[in-house]
Design a protein around this nucleic acid. Structure first.
Lengths: 341, 341
DNA sequence: CTGAAAGCGCTTACAG
DNA sequence: CTGAAAGCGCTTACAG
């Protein structure tokens, strides 16, 4: 019932605590006979080292923190899965906190994790985050930190991202290649780097094809929800009757848009083509199915943890950490919401 | 950079460590003057108690473990969100592990959490779990544990569930009320309690309406995936040409089924009505939209943590823990995959 | 009102 | 090859 301690094992065998500790950890300077004795008793007593004591001594908890804007989200839950599977592999556990896209909450979560003395932090920034002193603060405390997906260019740390600009360029280019001439864009809020980059990719593609950029075709969304997809589609149809394509920042919004267009019997892709971003599972089952950019969430989770793990190790060895930028490949999934080439 | 300790504060102020500790915790037997002095210095030094030392002394980590079959799953991610929000509220952090529906992995995760000395465990069982000695083992170690959603009736502990049998009965009854006479059932594996209960509810509804129970109409699925939904729909159509309704254990499978029926131009609900289970977001946007049982994931997460929290507190106070069963209400969401009443 | 002391359970440099 | 000792940073019962 109550867990055994080194002290008890030592007392039972008439050995010192030090010897027992060293025997269990296979130190070379303990006799094989003693090792065998100790290990056997430890086994029968079901000895487990007290994690709290080990943490205090070794100053590490083998635990990392993860701060994510929203857990109920296909992309992010894939990332979470990648992180915890890779972490487990390396003997680390993962504490998850959710920022709800709020800057204030994000600051609080980071603080909680720092107080908890996690060995490292993985974070995808909230949309509301416009200042990064909380990030710099934990890094200054010596806690390794890696950003993924929603990053801040301005912060000097390791990052795992996709090339949002290129992916957005490709998506928009595909609309153009399949004949669209008046292409709207539903973008995310103004601060997050990835919504900026996707917008820039969109704009670049237009210019690249000598299509004039018209700011009135760009709608700035806030919550990136299904409802916003419906709402802004209505707005768009009200404002412009000549639209033949929309590049939409995220699939959930695109699905809202498709729903609205279906309701109005506007033919997709004949009248309006739609391309989304993220490749949610859902996108393959609505009708028409949604062409989109595939974002490798699981892989991003794995890579992010691996990078963090390396930094944790380097830090322990007292070595200098060189920040790295990993950019993952995306690809375009062609389905029925865009015309065939 | 390096965090301040009590020792440093004590040395700076010429006080003892004990007094500093007590001053920070507002012990009544410390003078206000001293308290003020200590608190001010702690503030300027940005003092944070060393979590590892506190854990070791207090024998608690203010951390709980969560073992879940699959993170990338609308229902479970809602549960996760409910748990971490409630936990945060009470000053607890949550470590998440995923069993991948595997018994072996689940055992390993439980072991990891026990070794980590979490203050409590929340678990939804893997489909593969047929033996519960690992659960009993951690409970015997004195770690409070609460099961939710996928539980084992046989294990004596607190549980948060829905009334799967009643929900399944209601879903099947709705098919019958809207005119279905030959109703198939796609069920989950044989061991999980909720797939058993949903099957029993289905059967009960048939008998209640004098519809003979035909075992050949019940298909046992394994992975509960979209692909299985397509596959078993094909099988069903091959085996039986007189089906007019299907009650499907989970929405994802139902969506696979709808996709297959759509492909074959079988009219839903005119020729075959479909009702699912769980109310994934996706179910509202496919066409036809899916009638289903709404399962309150977020609430289930909140309630589960609350229950665990009470047990952790009771245990700390040395009080006896009385296991509780909480049953949450479900309701049927009527959409377009079933006929109107 | 303040402090010395014990102790949580472990690790590891050092002595013998 | 084994053990005594120091120490991680804190909490708390006890003494003064």
């Amino acid at each position: 019932m109550k867990p055994a301690t080194l002290k008890e094992i030592a007392a039972t065998l008439g050995l010192s605590i030090s010897t027992v500790s060293k025997a269990l950890k296979d130190y070379p300077d303990v006799s094989n006979k003693t090792k065998k004795l100790v290990k056997e008793l430890a086994e029968t007593l079901n000895y487990r080292p007290n994690a709290f004591a080990v943490n205090l001594r070794t100053k590490e908890s083998k635990t990392i923190g993860l701060v994510i804007p929203e857990v109920v989200h296909h992309f992010f839950s894939s990332v979470i899965k990648g992180i915890i599977s890779e972490a487990e592999d390396k003997g680390y556990l993962v504490i998850i906190l959710q920022s709800n896209e709020s800057f204030e909450l994000e600051k609080k979560q980071i603080e909680l994790l720092a107080n908890k003395q996690v060995d490292g932090i993985l974070i995808s920034l909230a949309n509301g985050t416009y200042d990064f002193s909380h990030i710099k603060a934990v890094m200054n405390q010596g806690i390794p930190l890696v950003m993924f997906d929603k990053i801040a260019k301005i912060v000097d740390c390791s990052k795992v991202i996709i090339d949002d600009q290129k992916a957005a360029f490709d998506a928009t280019q595909h609309l153009i290649d399949t004949g669209c001439k008046r292409i709207a864009h539903f973008r995310g809020p103004l601060t997050p780097q990835n919504s900026i980059d996707r917008f820039l990719g969109y704009k670049k593609a237009l210019l690249h094809n000598q299509i004039p950029y018209d700011p009135s075709l760009v709608y700035i969304l806030d919550s990136m929800s299904f409802e916003e997809g419906q709402h802004f589609t209505k707005e768009l149809l009200k404002d412009h009757d000549d639209i033949d394509g929309i590049f939409i920042n995220t699939d959930l919004v695109a699905i809202g848009s498709i729903t609205e267009l279906n309701k109005r019997n506007i033919k997709i892709p004949e009248q309006i083509s739609i391309i989304g971003f993220s490749n949610w599972f859902m996108s393959s089952v609505i009708s028409p199915s949604l062409s989109t950019v595939n974002q490798p969430g699981y892989l991003m989770g794995k890579k992010s943890f691996k990078l963090l793990y390396k930094e944790i190790k380097k830090r322990k060895e007292g070595k200098k950490i060189n920040y790295k930028n990993i950019e993952l490949k995306t690809d375009i999934i062609l389905r029925d919401s865009t015309k065939k080439l």
